[in-house]
Design a protein around this nucleic acid. Structure first.
Length: 276
DNA sequence: AGCAGTACCTGACGGC
DNA sequence: TGCCGTCAGGTACTGC
């Protein structure tokens, strides 16, 4: 589900609800969510008494900064956080519950159970997987043509796949890659080694612009995304490619096409985005 | 080393 | 009403 703009919106809305809250105890209902420590029991016990001092983000990861630990959380396709009163009924897709001393509960909800949580000693999170391997996200200093052009040019993969690779750029997913390539007028099947500096520059500029606009709109809601206050995003009203198959291209009127690239649904204007 | 295919899950939807 | 196949904002693992 969520890509960088949705995760950033979750970060902001959730921080407003749980900043300085102290964790009394933790219930893990689906242990596979917890990847570190290996024993979910240890995860529960280590978090007792910890306060939430900040929530950071890198790419699509949330990082809860606690007194002594950093909790790295990925929402994957369907993960959501919500804050509830203690006695609100717990639905069947809630898998981790943080009971707070204020009486509120922070709940992690995930229909497909793909989400992950890693707990690290404070300060260690960025030096270990999964954060260690991430490329720059569009708000970081390393996000430049000079840094990204060599990585893109040495690959023979489709540019769509390169942009989905979080070790190259962190934060883009299926929606924003399709939007970026539409705006930059690059066909998703162009190979990395076929792109010149000007084309890569266009991709970098359009990816950042798209992400920034989407953050301002609170993200994109296609089916199920809501932020931590339960609100949907609004950027779906400004999509040019994703989900627009059969509609006329906003630039030239040609019908937007949907194809498969490495098994992911991929949307493009066959007239504005040419292979050669 | 780098890449494609598959696994991890559940639910919604369309066709028969 | 089923039942079956396909699809979904993602990434880790396997094996070529």
């Amino acid at each position: 589900m969520p890509e960088l703009p949705e995760v950033e919106t979750v970060r902001k809305t959730l921080l407003a609800l749980v900043l300085n809250e102290r964790i009394k105890h933790v219930d893990v209902q689906w242990p596979n969510i917890i990847k570190m420590p290996a024993e979910p029991n240890d995860f529960q016990h280590l978090l007792e008494g910890q306060s939430i001092l900040d929530i950071k983000r890198k790419g699509k990861f949330l990082i809860f900064e606690l007194d002594n630990y950093s909790l790295v959380s990925h929402l994957r396709m369907e993960g959501k956080y919500g804050v509830y009163t203690k006695d609100e009924p717990i639905d069947k897709h809630t898998h981790v519950i943080f009971y707070l001393e204020s009486g509120k509960t922070l709940r992690y909800h995930d229909v497909r159970k793909f989400g992950t949580m890693h707990l690290f000693a404070k300060g260690q999170a960025f030096h270990d997987l999964p954060l260690k391997q991430l490329g720059p996200d569009p708000f970081e200093q390393e996000y430049t043509v000079d840094h990204l052009l060599p990585k893109i040019n040495k690959s023979t993969r489709a540019i769509k796949n390169i942009l989905l690779d979080q070790t190259v750029i962190a934060g883009l997913g299926n929606i924003y890659v399709d939007e970026t390539l539409f705006r930059a007028r690059i066909h998703p099947l162009r190979t990395g080694d076929s792109l010149d500096r000007k084309e890569v520059q266009a991709i970098i500029v359009e990816a950042k612009a798209t992400i920034e606009e989407a953050v301002k709109q609170g993200g994109t809601t296609i089916r199920s995304y809501v932020n931590s206050q339960g609100e949907i995003g609004m950027f779906q009203q400004q999509l040019y490619a994703y989900g627009q198959e059969g509609q006329p291209c906003a630039r030239c009127g040609t019908e937007v096409l949907k194809i498969k690239v490495s098994n992911r649904g991929t949307h493009l204007c066959p007239s504005c985005q040419q292979i050669s």
